[in-house]
Design a protein around this nucleic acid. Structure first.
Lengths: 119, 119
DNA sequence: CGGAATCCCTTAGGATACTG
DNA sequence: CAGTATCCTAAGGGATTCCG
C-alpha cells in the first residue's frame, strides 16, 4: 500500500475483509526485531533497555528503540520510566501483548505441519 | 536480515529459537498480496489466473504472478497448468495452505481483543 | 544510560512494455 | 491468456555520531 492503493476504505459500508484484518494484525508484528523482543518479554518479564540490548546482541540501538516504541504505540509493550539520574527504563508486555502467545503458537504448529519440499 | 545478520545458524547445535521459527512462519505470509490471494482461495476454491486478476483489481500482473509463484514454491498454493492453445492455468491451495485458516483466525481474534487506544 | 539524528544501501513492490 | 523483462521509487533497516 504505497501509492496506487490510495485508501480504498472511504466508504462507510466498505468494511474490511478478513484478508484486510489479518493484514492489520500482521502489521503489528512486522519489523525485523519485534518477535525477538516479544519472546524475550513473554511470561511477564520486565527488562530494562540495556538488558534487552545484551539479550539481543545483533540488534542496533536504533532498531531496538524503534521497534519498542512502535510496539508501545500499538499497545503491545508497556514502557516504564524511572526518573533517576542515570536513566532507567524498563519494558514489559501489556496484557494484550501477552495474549499474542496462543496465536503465535498456532502459526508455529502450522509451520511445523509442513512436509518440507526442499528444506 | 540483509547483511549484518550473516547467517548465525552455522552451528549444528544452534537450534532456532521460538522467535526464529515464528519469523520463518511469518515469512510465508509476507508480501503485499499473499493474504488477499489466500483468502480468495480458502475453501478449496480453484481459480484461474485471469479470475484472480479480476477478483483483485488493485494487484498488478507482475505482483500477482510473483506472489503466486512464491506461495507455490513454499507449498502453500498448487498450480495447475492446462496445456491448451489459449493457455489456462489454475490455482488452488494445498492442504497445508488450507491449514493456515485456524492460525489466521487466532491472529484475528487477538487483534479484535485489543482495546483500541486510538483506533 | 537511554535515546535522537543523520547518512547510506538494500529491497519490495509499482508501472509499463513485450512474448509464446 | 498467462506470463517475462525492465525501470524506478519508497520504505526498511544498518552504522555512526551526538545529547540530557
Amino acid at each position: 500500500m504505497t501509492r496506487t492503493h490510495e485508501k480504498v476504505g472511504y466508504l462507510p459500508e466498505s468494511k474490511p475483509s478478513a484478508a484486510d484484518r489479518v493484514e492489520q494484525a500482521l502489521k503489528f508484528l512486522e519489523g525485523r526485531w519485534k518477535l525477538v523482543i516479544l519472546f524475550r518479554l513473554f511470561g511477564g518479564k520486565v527488562l530494562r533497555f540495556s538488558e534487552l540490548e545484551k539479550a539481543i546482541p545483533a540488534v542496533s540501538q536504533k532498531m531496538l528503540i524503534q521497534q519498542l516504541r512502535q510496539m508501545e504505540a500499538d499497545g503491545i509493550v508497556r514502557r516504564i520510566v524511572h526518573h533517576q539520574v542515570p536513566p532507567k527504563v524498563e519494558y514489559c508486555l501489556t496484557d494484550w501483548g501477552q495474549a499474542l502467545c496462543p496465536a503465535l503458537d498456532a502459526l508455529l504448529k502450522w509451520a511445523e505441519a509442513r512436509e518440507h519440499p526442499a528444506t
